[in-house]
Design a protein around this nucleic acid. Structure first.
Ligand SMILES: [Mg+2]
Ligand SMILES: [Mg+2]
Length: 987
RNA sequence: GCUGUGAGCGU
DNA sequence: ATTACTATTGACGCTCACAGC
């Protein structure tokens, strides 16, 4: 082997379990990357282990040269930055169901300084758009295109020419950065496949690495390597999504929220209509081309607005990783590199990167855990250790000042405060019961560890930057740059903790993470106790905050209390710092992590702060959010409850009418849900609306991949579905609804019952004077279906001491029909207190028609037969639809389904003969032979008569009652089970 | 109510 | 007119909808 040199080096090994091993002697061997990699598990009498056999060239270069992110390696070039934006339009070739390129815009800015806050529209750029016909261009299109304003439009003969010209443009401009929206996931994928298919010239010019032979094109969204040498800033990448607050990250939405521009949405299925040489006009195609031009601008404007490039550069400079990785997202790698740099500098040997495996520690813990599967969350991911503490909220509407006291970056502070580090914390024993114990923090003599010092450095640098920002003479450009810097420092410090508990991390150290959160819980508990010792009421708290009820109505007094409390808390810690995060004038505390408040801004201004409520979630449509917003405003208005409740009821009534009257636009009904996996990978796609919609999108040639946010609307079923699939199948893409022109109708009832009512009900839960049934009624929904279980039960059976008479209670019960063997007549067994109709005489039961006696045994058999008939009917499980226009009666359904099976009907089915009906029937039979009740319900002179009768016929009554009771007990137990187990049936 | 699945808010 | 390869994942705490039992 050549190129080898040897060198003894003292180093400390950082392996696995918490504390680093002792300093030992190492032999450093270096050889070229042209030689094969050594296996990492070999040993010999001369050495026990080899480390870093699989270190990548990138890691080595960056560490050895101490390269901390983007910088010039040879200082000979002037600062040149060339940014390009590409925007492509594709069309689905339905014959082969593949996507082709029809239009592409390259918008190029040259010599840009990314820290320059000037918006892109104020900077010069060149615009070049290539467009090709599907068959032929509309007449005169070429002429009209040449007269386009700023941007150059180049009509191309075919797709291959388009691609070639695009490649030439990219080659000439040779951009350092490509900015796009869904470029990696969509555009690049189509570009690559089309370039290969059509044998485009110099295809590798899309990147800076020249190739002639095509390497395999990987899975969609994984082909970043084709762009080697250029940076890709994709607005839809995970990295960008973390920086942009948006529900869908669609271009249209981000333009609206971040640029205040109304971007026109184009239904992909309409693309062909713009191109049709016969139908379309040149103007129409031009609008399409200009739309493409404009999108390229929007993408750049958004990138500038959210500052992806400057921020990712700062993050990369801090961590010393690759800029492209930061742009693409994934925090773990940044964290890994910042630690690699630090440990390398201090001459530690770091744990090797394990490809495709969890870290050694994680794998070991897995074996020990065995099948003792802990609390699973998603994708079989277990919770590995305990996290933050959340106090049980004291629910309700608070109207005295509430002080929100919050620890400043709790976890980074804890790591510093307790000197938590790989090198300082002793490894822990595993308990007998497999429970891992929390390690002890080191004693105060132990010198500061690597991690605490790293975080301290970051925090100090941030403090310096923030003090710079206070300078009055600072230019806006400087301020912006400093703000980005301090943001990057904060993000970096805050992400250190997360990676300690990350099982795939090279620096995985679960005990350290567990210790950090443990201290967090301890601190929060102590903080609460301190507040209570100061006679302060803590109404809520989450991980690093306590909500203190000041119980005063004067702001100055509240501030005084907060200052006292703050001092009391901060005196207990060296570094840890609590601060007043905000003051709430009113607070509606609904659940853990769910509340709304009127926050006092400086002086007299206020703002509303909402956390965790349904209206913050993308799965609730705009309409639902609007209604929630109104209701919330009323509740927080501070006015008298009656007035508030009345206004809410009124509002809901008009909403119900407006919705049913079709006065609300389609956009207000759109629901969003993200695909957690690719749509094909769902085991039960049938029951998931967003998956169904995504699958249909794919069938039409559009893309729908893991991570995409799918919009959909619930429509009225067209029929042909089974009960199981009905709900999900009724979800349609908004474009489908728009295209269908009245074919598809929005399911207004569904929206009222599932999107509007539940959030409102949750908001009003602590409000006196209204309830679910009342709210449902206002919306025009059947209040009975929304009554609470207790209420429904009352309505069924009456309360125990109800005034409801038996006649009322049993009005729907079927009578006990007695057949006389002599005269073959049939008569109902009337209540015995009803002396005129009853067939029970003091001498015994007798036929009212022929006066012959009826035997006890005969009556008993007849009763049993009829009871069995009812029970059989119950088990037949006939269901009937509640929609009066349908009335479908069937037993086709699964026992627990509720949807009507009939095509096109949206009714809800209930058991025609329900458990409640059966129960009531049996109680009716029993009541017929209830001596005590008969006496009680009789009045005046009748009472004596009845009393005498039941005394004489006691045996008969007891026999019959026992018969009824036997079945009642059997079925009664069944009923109790059903009513408690399947409480949903009594909604 | 339990189980499972799927959502995504919160710190 | 030269390579080429995986794989890709910050933590935990809490609520909600749906299907099935
Ligand atoms: Mg905090
Ligand atoms: Mg907080």
């Amino acid at each position: 082997m050549k190129d080898i040199y040897e060198d003894f080096d003292r180093a400390v090994c950082l392996r696995g379990e918490g504390r680093a091993k002792k300093e030992t002697q190492w032999l450093k061997v270096v050889y070229g990357f042209n030689e094969p990699q050594l296996p990492n598990n070999v040993s010999s009498p001369n050495f026990s282990r080899i480390f870093a056999t699989n270190t990548t060239a990138f890691e080595l270069l960056v560490l050895k040269r101490k390269i901390m992110g983007p910088c010039w390696l040879q200082i000979k070039n002037p600062q040149v930055d060339n940014k390009g934006v590409s925007c492509t339009r594709t069309i689905v070739n339905h014959r082969e169901n593949i996507r082709e390129i029809v239009c592409a815009t390259a918008r190029i800015w040259s010599n840009i300084d990314i820290d320059d806050p000037t918006p892109p529209e104020a900077l010069p750029c060149t615009v070049r758009t290539f467009v090709r016909p599907l068959d032929r261009f509309p007449p005169n299109f070429e002429v009209r295109a040449s007269g386009n304003g700023k941007g150059l439009i180049s009509p191309m003969k075919n797709e291959r020419m388009l691609l070639n010209s695009l490649l030439v443009t990219i080659h000439r401009a040779d951009p350092d950065v490509i900015v796009g929206h869904e470029f990696l996931g969509v555009s690049l994928d189509v570009l690559l496949h089309r370039m290969r298919e059509l044998k485009a010239d110099h295809w590798s010019r899309i990147g800076r690495f020249r190739r002639s032979r095509w390497p395999p094109i990987g899975r969609q969204g994984t082909n970043l390597r084709f762009l080697s040498g250029r940076l890709l800033g994709d607005l839809a990448s995970d990295g960008a999504k973390d920086m942009i607050t948006s529900t869908t990250w669609s271009l249209t939405e981000m333009c609206k929220t971040h640029l205040k521009s109304d971007r026109q949405d184009i239904d992909p299925d309409d693309t062909a209509s713009y191109f049709d040489g016969g139908v379309s006009s040149p103007e129409r195609l031009l609008t399409f081309v200009r739309h493409c031009e404009l999108d390229a601008h929007y993408q750049m404007a958004l990138a500038a607005k959210v500052q992806i490039l400057p921020l990712t550069r700062q993050l990369t400079n801090l961590a010393g990783n690759s800029w492209n990785k930061t742009l693409n997202g994934g925090r773990a790698e940044r964290n890994e590199y910042i630690l690699l740099h630090e440990f390398h500098r201090l001459k530690y040997v770091c744990p090797d990167k394990l490809w495709g495996k969890k870290s050694a520690v994680a794998a070991k813990a897995e074996n020990e855990d065995g099948d003792a599967e802990g609390g699973k969350t998603t994708k079989g991911k277990r919770d590995k250790y305990k996290g933050g503490l959340v106090f049980e909220p004291k629910r309700g509407l608070w109207d005295k000042y509430i002080l929100v006291m919050d620890f400043n970056s709790l976890y980074p502070s804890i790591i510093q405060e307790y000197n938590i580090d790989f090198t300082t914390v002793e490894s822990v024993e595993v308990d007998a019961d497999g429970e891992e114990k929390i390690p002890e923090p080191p004693s105060s003599e132990v010198p500061q560890g690597v991690l605490p010092r790293l975080i301290a450095t970051l925090v100090n640098r941030r403090r310096q930057v923030k003090s710079l920002m206070k300078d009055k003479k600072a230019t806006p450009a400087q301020l912006l740059q400093w703000d980005i810097k301090q943001m990057a420092l904060k993000l970096t410090a805050n992400s250190m903790y997360g990676c300690l508990g990350f099982e795939y991390s090279r620096f995985y150290a679960r005990p350290l993470a567990a210790l950090t959160t443990f201290k967090g819980r301890e601190i929060l508990t102590h903080t609460r106790e301190l507040a209570e010792s100061m006679q302060l009421d803590v109404v809520y708290g989450d991980t690093d905050s306590v909500f203190v009820n000041s119980n005063v109505t004067e702001l100055a007094e509240a501030l005084k209390i907060s200052a006292e409390f703050k001092k009391a808390v901060n005196d207990r810690y060296k570094l840890l710092e609590i601060d007043l995060d905000g003051i709430f004038q009113r607070l509606l505390l609904l659940q853990k992590k769910k509340y709304a408040a009127v926050k006092v801004e400086d002086g007299s201004r206020t703002s509303t702060e909402v956390k965790g409520l349904d209206m913050k979630r993308r799965e609730y449509c705009v309409l639902s959010k609007t209604v929630s917003q109104y209701v919330l405003e009323q509740i927080l208005s501070g006015e008298a409850t009656e007035a508030v409740v009345e206004r809410i009821h009124e509002y809901l009534t008009t909403i119900g009418e407006d919705v049913r009257g079709g006065k609300i636009k389609l956009d207000e009904f759109i629901i969003f849900k993200r695909l957690g996996k690719n749509p094909e990978d769902y085991p039960d796609a049938k029951s998931q609306p967003h998956v169904q919609v995504a699958l249909r999108m794919k069938a039409r040639g559009l893309t729908a991949r893991a991570g995409d946010v799918i919009p959909y609307v619930f429509c009225i079923g067209e029929g042909g579905e089974t009960a199981k699939t009905a709900q999900a199948d009724r979800a349609k893409h908004p474009d489908e609804v728009r295209r269908s022109s009245d074919e598809l109708k929005i399911d207004y009832e569904h929206y009222l019952a599932h999107q509007i009512l539940p959030p409102i009900e949750r908001l009003c839960e602590p409000i006196e004077g209204t309830d679910r049934a009342r709210l449902a009624e206002c919306l025009g929904l059947d209040p009975n279906r929304y009554r609470s279980a207790a209420e429904s039960e009352e309505r069924y059976f009456g309360t125990l001491d109800s005034l409801m008479s038996d006649a009322e209670r049993f009005k729907d019960a079927e009578p006990f029909l007695v057949r006389c063997r002599s005269c073959r007549g049939q008569v109902a067994f009337a209540p015995i207190s009803d002396r005129e109709s009853s067939l029970l005489l003091p001498s015994g039961p007798a036929c009212p028609a022929c006066q012959s006696a009826l035997g006890t045994a005969s009556l008993q058999v007849q009763l049993e037969t009829q009871i069995r008939g009812h029970i059989a009917k119950y088990y037949e499980s006939w269901t009937v639809c509640d929609d009066p226009t349908c009335g479908n009666r069937t037993r086709m359904m699964g026992v627990y389904g509720r949807r009507c099976l009939r095509q096109g009907c949206r009714g809800t089915v209930a058991f025609e003969y329900s458990d409640a009906t059966l129960y009531n029937q049996l109680r009716f039979y029993l009541s017929l032979f209830d001596a005590e009740k008969a006496v009680k319900t009789s009045t005046g002179s009748k009472a004596d008569e009845v009393k005498a009768l039941v005394d004489l016929q006691g045996d008969f009554l007891r026999t019959m009652a026992a018969t009824a009771e036997k079945y009642l007990n059997q079925s009664g137990r069944r009923w109790v089970q059903l009513s408690t187990l399947f409480s949903f049936m009594k909604m």
